[in-house]
């Protein structure tokens, strides 16, 4: 149809009968309806995301116990947090250990599995199997894991280790300091394939198959080269998304840790940054201090997010 203009025509670009309008009303006449479409979400987004971030930053400089009005105390919370709060240092150490190990491992595993599964006939069934643990949620499944790692001889793992003679008496997996974090990591990895896996699986399907043919002509001989030179570069958007999700998940570990080890966990061995936040905010009601923890968490994840954008941003996009 030759008459249709090539450029986008806004709803009411054709001058209305009353063409003489103030700039403001003309602006509203042209775009208003779209802002109305956006209004409900943007209201929620402003009230429950933007404002809370700003308020958290403000509260982190105050003493606030919900009952009295917040009192400005400058950097005190930050000083206390880093210089005197040993539990927070433990929480940081635990969270970092968790994030540094489960983040990359989970990211790699979910890509690897997605890559292996993608060409197979039984793709759908296998994808469901690998994704199922992240659907069911850590809380429900902690029933099984608590029995598996239970500290008496009826715990499955203990029973097995006793039977093969690896240990002489039951090991307290969920209360010994040395084993709490590894158990939490194991369970999290089991259920942690999460969104990344599905994004990768879908991303693999969008890779242009002509590229593989072209690669063969250009001398790519083994599957590893194919992944490195063709698949990975074509999947940058999905990889970025998956890595951002992995970072956020890694640093916000809380539910699984609490379900398995309790809050507070024995000797704080399963204490994470979010556990600390939850403890101060909703058990002790020291909101100012908890807000400081939140701000640290915010800066951390946000900074890493920017870094990931750097890594995966594609300057050489074809």
């Amino acid at each position: 149809m030759a008459t249709r203009p090539e450029v986008f025509v806004p709803a009411r670009a054709i001058p209305a009968p009353h063409a003489r309008r103030s700039p403001l009303s003309a602006f509203w006449y042209r775009w208003g309806v779209y802002y109305l479409f956006m209004a409900p979400f943007m209201t929620m987004f402003t009230v429950f995301i933007i404002a809370p971030v700003l308020v958290a930053i403000y509260l982190s400089f105050t003493y606030f116990n919900v009952l009295e009005a917040p009192r400005w105390i400058g950097w005190s919370n930050y000083k206390l947090l880093f210089l005197e709060d040993d539990v927070f240092i433990t929480a940081i150490a635990n969270t970092l250990t968790f994030a540094v190990i489960t983040g990359p491992v989970g990211f790699f595993i979910s890509f690897f599995f997605a890559w292996l599964i993608n060409p197979l006939k039984a793709k759908t069934v296998l994808a469901l199997c690998f994704y199922a643990p992240s659907i069911v949620g850590g809380i429900a499944m902690s029933v099984v894991w608590k029995i598996v790692f239970s500290g008496d001889r009826y715990g499955y793992l203990n029973n097995y280790l006793l039977n093969i003679g690896a240990i002489d008496e039951p090991y307290q997996f969920l209360s010994e300091q040395a084993s709490i974090m590894p158990v939490i990591m194991f369970v999290s990895l089991w259920m942690g394939m999460g969104t990344g896996f599905l994004v990768f699986l879908a991303g693999l399907q969008t890779v242009n198959t002509d590229l593989y043919e072209a690669g063969k002509v250009d001398g790519i001989s083994n599957p590893l080269q194919e992944v490195w030179y063709i698949t990975l570069p074509s999947m940058k958007p999905q990889l970025l998304f998956g890595s951002v999700m992995a970072v956020v998940a890694g640093f916000s570990v809380f539910e699984v840790a609490t379900a398995l080890a309790g809050l507070p966990s024995p000797l704080y061995a399963g204490h994470t940054i979010v556990s600390h936040l939850y403890d101060y905010a909703f058990i002790r009601f020291e909101m100012g201090y908890a807000a400081t923890v939140a701000v640290i968490l915010f800066l951390w994840t946000f900074g890493l997010g920017r870094l990931l954008f750097r890594i995966f941003s594609s300057k050489n996009e074809y």
């Binding site: 308020v55 956020v248 936040l277 946000f302």
Partner: peptide, 17 residues
Amino acid sequence: AALMFAPQVTRIPQYLV
């Protein structure tokens, strides 16, 4: 940007709201 930080960050002010 909102996708990039842990959702728990906003929990306290959300509670206040």
